[in-house]
Amino acid sequence: MKSAVTRILYTLALYLVIPLELIRLYWRGRVSPDYRLRWSERFAINLPEVQKGGIWIHTASVGEFFAALPVIHALLEKHPENTLTVTTMTPTGSEQVRAELGDRVYHIYVPFDLPDAVARFLNHVQPQKLLIMETELWPNLISSANNRGAEIILMNARLSDRSAKGYQYVSSQTRSILRNVSIIAAQHQDDADRFIALGANPSSIRVTGNIKYDLNIQQGMVETGKKLREKFNSELVWIAASTHRGEDEQVIEAHRLVREQYPTAQLILVPRHPERFNEVAAICKNLKVSFSRRSLEQAPDQAVYIGDTMGELLLLFAVADIAFVGGS
């Protein structure tokens, strides 16, 4: 009963928040116009035709998509007869799905977690299995998919202590969601223990490790990385990848300290969100740091090389000796 009331309150609040979310998307569209496109998909309206059934994989954005890519390739190979639907939440994630998989999968945005939007989506796709990367616990989506008989699996599931404490405030709702999940493939035992403490069925838990380590790096990419490295002017190159707002200044200051001991050291700076590419270039300019930009095909011969392209993060990692990942 308490869970049902919580779900109703959550849904009512979500309907009130959606207009603000649309305003946020429109605002982000100032820098990245794709945020202003395909809104009908977010409400599951006028979706492209698809063969019903098969497997649905939800990856929120770029990082989750690349982590799930080995699984997606394996499913395409083992179940070529099944429709494979891949959803994302962001334009950058969508761009990578199309670049990596093309028309081998059915790709659209995941619907907002509104009962009517979720129902339209499930009526249209009718998945037999739903694989969710990490911890996207959308109450209406998971409940509706379960009620329609779809097997639900959380892949690469993680749950920090801080997040677990947040879910405890809606413990009945969280327990109801987790009990609808058939398998929770947790990254670590600590994650598994937190899921169980929140009400997950212990028999649904599997500790599988982090599947990001299963990513298959093609030899051609390694060789391309070596060739790109030859264009750098330093024996020491390090990368700060997926940086968030507020981190870039700290990274650049750290790079100044590195160059006190290694004067020719070079930094590859890769913002997490493409709409921040120009912002990071402006930060370098304001801090009077010499830089070049990959998107402009400029030579990597300055103190900072901004990796402002899409789909090349692994290549840039191949160039570097040391890596820092933003938000970590």
Rank of each mutant, 00 (worst) to 15 (best):
L37M: 10
P70W: 08
K226I: 10
P202I: 07
P111T: 08
G307F: 03
E249D: 13
R42G: 04
I177G: 01
G311M: 02
P19N: 08
D321W: 13
L130N: 01
N147K: 15
Q298A: 11
F277I: 07
L269W: 09
N156R: 05
V62I: 10
I268R: 11
H273D: 04
G102P: 04
R175G: 10
R245G: 05
R38D: 03
L131V: 06
P300A: 05
L236I: 13
D214P: 13
I268C: 11
F121A: 15
S163H: 05
Q250D: 11
L9W: 01
V258H: 08
M155R: 07
R276V: 02
T59Y: 06
L137Y: 03
G326N: 02
N180Y: 02
R294G: 08
H188G: 12
P300D: 01
F65N: 10
L75K: 05
V17P: 06
N82S: 13
G209T: 06
V97A: 09
L9M: 13
G93I: 00
G54F: 09
S295N: 12
E21I: 14
N123T: 12
A60D: 02
P300W: 00
Q298H: 11
A299C: 09
A164I: 08
Y35V: 05
Q168K: 15
F277R: 14
Y262C: 14
G327E: 00
A320P: 11
S176D: 11
L9E: 00
P19G: 09
F65G: 07
N278P: 04
K2I: 14
V170R: 07
P91D: 08
E230N: 15
S290I: 03
T174S: 12
H244F: 02
